[in-house]
Amino acid sequence: MLRTEDLGYWYQDKDQPLFQNINLEFETGQSYAILGHSGTGKTTFLSLIAGLDKPREGDIFLDDRSLKKIGLTNFRRHDVAIVFQAYNLFTYMSPLNNLLTAMAITGASHAGDKGYAQRILNDLGIGDDLITRNVQQLSGGQQQRVAIARTMCCDARLVVADEPTGNLDEDNTQAVIAQFQRIAHEQKKCVIIVTHEPDVAAQCDHQYRLENKQFVQLA
């Protein structure tokens, strides 16, 4: 589904790339974990496959179509959903409106369907008493679940998450990882999680470690 071809990235100096000649393939219905120490470039890699930045060399293909041709804005709108460590929800909205807004922007097939958004939120443990409250009144774990619900209500086949459990306790971490697995296995989406927690990575179908400017498959 998603393929990188000789992907490389550097900030200032081409001779000091974060990574180079990366050739990876990601399939739908699978979950992937990318491990690595801080500063190795795993989040930068995620920003490239999420269409938030352009690679310095190489290319990324979605179903054999280059992202350059698809266009990054189009790619982000229709093909990818992102979960951030800081949740990045619309703070002036309720969980329900967060989902409805994302569905409207991405032109999701259920756009405008409040019942659908409500069901997804309920499935993730956000009860009816919470869905119309302002998101800032929710706990960190609840906010992260709203962020995950946002990815589920859109039609994007690729879900990327940057340290999604970084701010969560153990219980919420497990709940969030379980949701990602459901997204991958039940919704048949491709889930790529960047994390520095081996326990989280271990629950994904595939694990890669970014070290010495290369991705090493662990499992």
């Binding site: 992102i82 990045n88 922007i105």
Partner: peptide, 13 residues
């Protein structure tokens, strides 16, 4: 700017 960033990440024009 975070809100704008989220909107852009969702593919908003």
């Amino acid at each position: 700017r975070f809100e704008i960033g989220v909107l852009l990440s969702l593919g908003e024009a």
